[in-house]
């Protein structure tokens, strides 16, 4: 008989526990507003993580952006102007001309980094050049981000598919190794680059370019 009472006790505690967990979990039938209220009573803050307060557009950066937009007009799109940072997107056909203008007229002289960003949903890969200047005192704080988008193929064949763009190596010599890295990690072929080989990956790498989003880390 004693074992029976023990069982009952165990059952009781589980019921209590499940009742508690019901209380803290969110019922499915709530609307969004109800859910926010529900979480607020639990002491959880559901306001957005990033405060969205508009910042004033700095003048020096604005003048730089005006120079480039007056020259190229619709061929470029200014994504943002912030303090010390300008970002411009252009089509891949125009990128060499835009880069030459940035080097000769705006006096940026080297590339700090070349990053690929994969957007499988829009079937595009974005290549972003972050340019800086050593020679011009005024540009010491500045980073100019020049971006372009190239088409992305679902089954990549690096070097022989349409994922290609002109290389900026003749404009900014310093992109040489950065573009090689972008080629192996994203499969973007840079036309006109003198030495478009792999850099970090092994020579016999036979999988898709590993920094694309459809290359998954095992077990994740």
């Amino acid at each position: 008989m004693s074992s029976g009472t023990e069982k009952d006790e165990v059952k009781d505690t589980t019921e209590e526990h499940s009742a508690n967990s019901d209380d803290t979990s969110r019922p499915d039938s709530m609307s969004k507003d109800e859910a926010i209220k529900f979480y607020e009573t639990k002491g959880l803050d559901l306001s957005p993580d990033v405060p969205t307060k508009p910042k004033p557009i700095p003048e020096f950066e604005k003048s730089m952006a005006d120079k480039i937009s007056s020259k190229f007009g619709d061929a470029i799109h200014i994504d943002y102007i912030r303090s010390d940072r300008i970002r411009v997107t252009t089509k891949r056909e125009n990128i060499v001309d835009v880069a030459k203008f940035i080097r000769d007229e705006l006096r940026y002289d080297h590339a700090e980094s070349v990053s690929g960003v994969d957007y499988p949903d829009s079937r595009e890969i974005e290549v972003v050049y972050h340019l800086g200047s050593y020679t011009d005192e005024k540009l010491g704080r500045q980073i100019f981000a020049l971006a372009t988008r190239v088409p992305r193929e679902d089954i990549p064949n690096p070097g022989s598919d349409t994922t290609r763009m002109p290389s900026l190596r003749d404009v900014f010599y310093s992109v040489e190794f950065h573009e090689r890295e972008c080629f192996e990690m994203f499969g973007v072929y840079f036309e006109g680059h003198p030495d478009m080989r792999r850099l970090l990956l092994p020579e016999d790498w036979a999988d898709i370019p590993p920094f694309r989003k459809d290359f998954k880390i095992k077990g994740r």
Partner: peptide, 15 residues
Amino acid sequence: PYRVKISVGSFRNLI
């Protein structure tokens, strides 16, 4: 993060 790119000094000096 959607993408993190680290541009390091060693890689830039490799050239």
